[in-house]
Simulated scan of single mutants.
Amino acid sequence: MRPLDAITIDDEPIAHEILAHYSKRLNGIRLKRQFTNPEQACKYLASNHVDLILLDIEMADVNGFAFYRSLPQRPMVIFTTAHPEYALEGFNVSAVDYLLKPFSEERFEQAILKAGMQKDVQEMAPSLTIRADYETRNVQLKDILYIEGLNNYVKIYTTSATHPLLSMISLKEMMSRLPGHQFMRIHRSYIVPRPRVSAITSRYVTVAGKKLPVGDTYRSSVMTILQ
C-alpha cells in the first residue's frame, strides 16, 4: 500500500512537532507539509495531491470544521483537538477519526491505519463514506439512484435499500464529495448520477421511473451535459 500523503494544519508549533515525530515512525503516512496558516494550506491543496489532513479545530484564524467544509475537494480528515465536545460534529462530516490531545503514538497509529483501510476500500470499489442513521456507512456510488436535499440533511436513494439513508450533511457539501464526471446538480434539492437519467425535458429528468424537477438555475448546464 502506498503511504498516505498528508498535511497538518494547526496553529500550535508543538502540535506539529508531535505529529511529525509520530509520522516519521510509521510506514503508512508521508507528511508532505505542515501549516500554521489555514489560508496557505488551502492554496497548497488547490495544486497538490493530498490523501489526508490532520486538522486542529480551535485555531486563531478559523474553525477547523468551517475550513474543511469550505474546501471544493475534501481529502480524508482526522481532527486533532483538545476539545472533546466537538466529537459528534467531527463524525457528522465523516471524519476518519477524532484524536483528543494529548494522544499517544499508539492512538495516532490506529487512526492512520484506519485512514489507510478507508483509502483501500475507496480504491477497490468506488464508494462514499458517510455518517448515516447513526452509523458510518460505505455507499457504493454505482448503487445511488438520486440524492434529495432537505435543509441541513440529505436522503440518499439507492438500489440496495428499501428506505433512503439519512445523513446530516448539506446538498452542497454532498456534491463536493462526489465525482463531478458521474454526478450533477439539477435542482437546489436534487443530485443525480448522469448514467441513471433515462429521459430529459426542459423541466424534468427521469431517474428510475421517477420525474425529478430541473431548477431554473441549473437548466442550461443540465441540457448541455445530457443532450
Rank of each mutant, 00 (worst) to 15 (best):
D143F: 03
S104N: 09
G90K: 08
T158D: 08
K210L: 13
R25N: 10
R188I: 06
L145P: 01
P3G: 07
T136M: 15
A20Y: 00
M76I: 10
R107N: 13
M76L: 15
V214W: 04
E58F: 01
V222L: 05
G64Q: 07
D11P: 03
H49C: 03
F67D: 03
H163R: 14
Q40A: 13
M175E: 15
L128K: 06
D56T: 02
K101E: 10
H21T: 13
T217S: 15
Q118C: 11
I191R: 11
A111Y: 04
E109S: 12
R30E: 11
K211Y: 09
A15L: 04
K142L: 00
D143E: 15
Y98N: 04
Q73C: 08
S70H: 13
E173P: 00
R25M: 06
R194T: 14
R33L: 02
Y98R: 01
S202T: 07
E58P: 01
G180S: 14
T158E: 09
V207P: 07
G90R: 08
A115E: 09
P193V: 10
Y204S: 11
P3M: 07
L212E: 12
I18C: 02
E173V: 09
S70Q: 14
V214E: 03
K211S: 13
P179R: 11
Q140G: 11
R2K: 15
A111Q: 10
D133W: 07
Q122N: 11
M223N: 04
I29Q: 06
E105L: 14
L166Q: 05
I169K: 14
F91H: 07
L166R: 07
E148P: 06
S104T: 15
I200W: 00
A199Y: 04
S160C: 12
P3F: 07
T80D: 04
N151L: 11
L141E: 12
L26D: 03
E173G: 08
D61F: 01
L150P: 03
E85F: 03
V207W: 04
A82W: 05
L4N: 06
L55V: 11
K114F: 06
I78E: 09
L178T: 01
N48L: 07
H83C: 08
R107I: 15
E58C: 01
Y157N: 10
L99P: 14
I78D: 09
N27T: 08
A6F: 09
I9D: 06
I225L: 13
Y218G: 02
D216C: 02
T217G: 04
I144K: 06
A66K: 13
Q40W: 01
Q118D: 00
I156C: 11
E105K: 14
S220P: 01
A82V: 08
I156H: 10
P75S: 09
K114P: 05
I147P: 09
P84G: 04
Y86D: 02
S198Q: 11
N48P: 05
L166W: 01
S170C: 07
F79I: 03
I147Q: 13
T36K: 10
V139E: 05
E85C: 02
L226E: 00
F67C: 06
R137W: 01
P75H: 10
R2A: 12
E109M: 07
R185D: 00
M76F: 15
T201F: 05
R30N: 14
K114M: 13
I200E: 00
